[in-house]
Design a protein around this nucleic acid. Structure first.
Lengths: 346, 346
DNA sequence: GTGAAAGCGCTAACAG
DNA sequence: CTGTTAGCGCTTTCAC
């Protein structure tokens, strides 16, 4: 036996076709097609007759045939990045939920695929060339984003969740959340509550997102004439890094509050506080980023910046529709504002 | 040759077809088709020539055309249940990741869809009749699972992640994780460490999964001749419920350890301990269920039962392949064992 | 081993 | 407004 044996039996045994409906309704196939796709073209009595036949037969258009004919699949491709255990997949997952929901209302379904090992483009290429999807939603555009460049070169339709940071060539539509505005919000919240030494724990300097979020913190500090010297730390996004960085900052600069680039890092701060018998919120304030499940469940509740992912999904789908309706359209970007979810730690 | 007028500006501007490859290789279209699907049928030199032509043109078979012809989409449908904020979507999301990954290796992609409001079947019906997917993966079979019954009646191919608890009519393939074994593991772990009063906080009695997990706890207790009277609480799956239930149990029965049906409930226990100045792991032991991100990040690390979702995904895809290859096959069930991830709280 | 026909079910383009 | 014609790109007969 060959490994590629295509002996697949299909689901509905005798699904009715356009022809069946046409016969039953006493019209031509085209009229049935119109009844489905352009009801306005039919006279109301004909339409009614056809619709009744459709209902009686339980007719549903065959996707494959329609796709072949219209050269559209009504599918949007989304690449699932490899699972990063412990890292905030939360954001991504919440976004997927919203995207699926929003897409449905626009008549689209979401096709999930995963990267083939090292080359993140491989998955895109196959789906694109096989016309399996109409467009992509690209989510990981943070670093040099090879996907965006590659997709642009192939003139593949896609909308990015994430700004084309330093890619001046970029002409694609994108939607993003203003991270700096979020951390600024968080920092101001702390300053308003009397804190003056607010520390920052963020990501390494090569992360554009990290630097953006950091800028919100420093902007809010400088705005009030406060110094940020010695109050910032840049580490990798892990629990241990957050713990170590906060311990170090606490020793060296005695901040009374921390703003972090992620909930993971903020949880690291909570570990340090617990180790030292300090109470989050009472002794030292902590703010995270992403409003993950952890933030909601941990004692006494982690104050965190929340991205409006539902709105992002809506905007992405809207861009997608524009893009597919008018392929050569001028690309636009949209920057949404996050909110601060205040809980016990701040 | 057909002078095809590419009016539509879809993704690939000039996607080569079978005919293009055939012309370039100097063979017929069918030979190219065979080269792709049944390479064994070709003479090696012909095969090589065709493959070179395919490579040079960058030919990829058109999915819609192939789907129409073969009546298969190589797509698996998965319904995303509405987002339940705060509740462990973690499991589901981890599973989706694994499923996408495993499916790819089997030549399948995952199509996400969402329920249309109240009726959870609506989404299934459309996809099924329109031949958009070859089969479904059904994940929420916990309660009376209307989907399973409905899908069975339509003779729709599907594999369930979750047992057909009390559905004796069920003949579909399923994969599940032995929750009772997990809680038994957790309870034994505590008993081995000297605890004798291990309390249970689980879900309400109408949850089959909840009762199953509870049975593992009581089995382990009785096995050692320990009483479970007054040590169990059944509540809804929320942080507040876990907090209240644990406070009540602590007052009434003074347990030294808690086993919970979810990480959410376990986090509720941690809240109670924090409120009373008790230290998790040192004063009172706590074990959760699902090994969510929270368990990994909270101080001092929540010991939790972890479901082998990667294995589940592999088994599900394998069942899917069997099912699609041999539709009338006898259904089988597979029960996998979870593991205990030991951290600071136990 | 390879090629020639015959559609899968649908819709764009026209004709009536 | 409705019907007729002609494929979309592919694979499944069945000749050669």
């Amino acid at each position: 036996m060959d490994s590629r044996s295509r002996t697949v039996t299909r689901i509905p045994v005798n699904a009715p076709t356009l022809a069946d409906v046409a016969e039953r309704a006493g019209v031509s196939r085209q009229t049935v097609s119109n009844a489905v796709n352009n009801p306005d073209l039919l006279r109301s009595d004909t339409l009614l007759r056809v619709q009744r036949a459709i209902g009686e037969l339980g007719y549903v258009p065959n996707r494959a045939a329609r796709n072949l004919r219209t050269r559209a699949s009504h599918l949007v491709g989304l690449r699932m990045s490899p699972v990063l255990e412990g890292v905030a997949t939360t954001v991504m997952d919440r976004f997927v939920h919203s995207l699926v929901w929003t897409s449905r209302e626009a008549g689209y379904h979401v096709l999930l695929f995963s990267g083939e090992g090292p080359d993140p483009l491989e998955g895109y290429d196959d789906l694109l060339r096989s016309t399996a999807v109409d467009a992509f939603v690209v989510t990981d555009t943070y670093l040099g984003n090879p996907q965006a460049v590659w997709l642009r070169e192939r003139r593949a339709p896609f909308v990015a969740f994430g700004r084309p940071w330093d890619d001046v060539e970029a002409r694609h539509p994108w939607v993003d959340v203003d991270g700096a505005a979020g951390t600024e919000l968080a920092t101001r919240h702390l300053l308003d509550r009397g804190h003056t030494k607010v520390a920052w724990i963020g990501w390494r300097k090569d992360s554009r997102i990290g630097e953006d979020r950091r800028s919100g913190w420093s902007r809010a500090m400088h705005e009030r004439g406060l110094s940020t010297t010695g109050l910032a730390s840049r580490v990798e996004d892990s629990l241990g890094s957050g713990r170590d960085a906060s311990a170090h900052l606490l020793d060296e600069a005695q901040p009374s509050a921390f703003v972090c680039a992620s909930d993971t890092l903020a949880m690291g701060v909570l570990h340090t506080l617990a180790d030292r018998g300090l109470h989050p919120g009472r002794d030292v304030a902590v703010v995270g980023f992403d409003d993950s499940q952890v933030a909601q469940l941990v004692h006494p509740g982690l104050t965190s910046v929340r991205q409006p992912l539902e709105e992002v999904a809506i905007a992405v789908v809207r861009s997608l529709e524009d893009l597919l309706a008018t392929p050569s359209q001028v690309a636009d970007g949209l920057l949404l504002s996050p909110t601060l979810v205040v809980r016990g730690t701040a």
